[in-house]
Computed example of a mutant assay.
Amino acid sequence: MSIGFKIKKLREEVNLSQENLAVQLGITQSELSKIENGRAKKIDVFFMAKVCDFFKKDFDHFTGKKSVNKEVVSYTIQTSLAIIIKELKKIIDENQKKDEIIKFLKSKK
């Protein structure tokens, strides 16, 4: 069963229209329709974090995979943002190092 179909099934279980769920998830009804019908080329991780949070399901529910450990991992927007911030800090650090090397090389001219 596809991720989109699972979203559709959960939506129908709580008697929400596509339009109402789309508003709750911050996307258009058209985008949600594509996801539910398997026509979306990619499903954004931030969108899936919202879906997991909205339906109170972990990501494994949508992928069909079981967690290796017994702890339930909550894929929230805050978790996703923490990962993004960590990656951005790495990029900034790398760029600062490159800038220092460039300055050093320029000073040797």
Rank of each mutant, 00 (worst) to 15 (best):
A40D: 06
V45A: 13
L25F: 03
I84S: 13
S2P: 07
A40K: 11
K65I: 08
K89G: 02
K98G: 06
N69V: 06
F62A: 02
I27N: 03
S67D: 12
V51R: 01
T28P: 04
K42C: 02
F54P: 00
D58S: 09
S67I: 03
D60A: 10
K90P: 01
K66M: 05
A40E: 04
K90G: 03
K56L: 03
F54M: 02
E87Q: 12
M48Y: 01
M48V: 03
I84Q: 12
M48D: 03
K103Q: 15
K106Y: 09
K34H: 11
D93G: 12
L88H: 14
L32D: 00
K98F: 08
M1Y: 13
L81N: 15
E19G: 07
M48I: 02
K42S: 10
I35R: 05
N37S: 15
L81D: 12
K66N: 08
S17I: 01
K8W: 01
K98N: 14
T63A: 04
I102A: 13
K109R: 10
I85C: 08
F104Y: 13
I83D: 14
S17H: 12
I92F: 12
K57F: 02
M1V: 06
K70P: 04
G38R: 04
I102P: 05
K86S: 10
K108S: 08
V51T: 02
T79G: 09
K41E: 13
V23K: 13
N95I: 03
L88D: 10
K97R: 11
I85N: 14
E13T: 14
K108F: 02
I35M: 03
L25G: 02
I35K: 01
E100S: 14
G4Q: 04
F47G: 06
Q29G: 09
S67T: 13
I35Q: 06
S2V: 00
N95R: 05
F5W: 09
R11H: 06
L88M: 12
K57D: 09
G38K: 01
T76E: 03
S107E: 11
N69R: 11
T28R: 07
I92V: 12
I83Q: 14
L16E: 07
N20R: 15
K34D: 14
I35A: 01
K50S: 04
I3F: 11
I77N: 08
F54D: 00
G4Y: 01
A49E: 07
I3K: 07
L10G: 02
Q96C: 11
T79P: 00
K86T: 13
S30L: 08
N37D: 07
I83Y: 15
M1L: 11
